[in-house]
């Protein structure tokens, strides 16, 4: 895939970042550097190697279903930049209703 302005703008959009126009071109070069580095790795023949997604090889431990309440909720709420009552407060999401990806 060719890394160009469009790709950078798309990624910025996904990340909800506003990039000033003059910052896009340097970012294209930066992306190319990073992706280029990984392209070097593509030269390795991995056809005989199974994909590796974790190094431990152990099975995922299963936790017992026993509830406990965390004691520092207030601290977490206090450390939020904005709150209203016990809600966290974030800038309004414009033009979207009932986002329900899950």
């Amino acid at each position: 895939m060719e890394i160009d302005r469009k790709v950078v703008e798309h990624v910025a959009d996904l990340a909800r970042l506003e990039l000033e126009p003059e910052k896009i071109e340097p970012m294209v070069l930066f992306f190319r550097d990073i992706i280029g580095h990984f392209r070097i790795l593509e030269d390795c023949d991995t056809s005989h190697v199974d994909p590796l997604s974790d190094t431990g090889g152990a099975a995922c431990p299963l936790r017992a279903d026993e509830p406990s309440l965390w004691g520092n909720i207030q601290e977490a709420l206090d450390s939020a930049p904005l709150r209203e009552g016990s809600f966290f407060k974030v800038p309004a999401i414009e033009g979207e209703e009932g986002h329900d990806e899950v």
Binding site: L82, E84, G85, F87, F88, K89, V90, P91, A92, I93
Partner: peptide
């Protein structure tokens, strides 16, 4: 949180 929907510039998260 008082139920006002329009004219607010924030969303609340639970």
């Amino acid at each position: 949180s008082d139920g006002r929907l329009s004219g607010t510039s924030f969303s609340l998260v639970d």
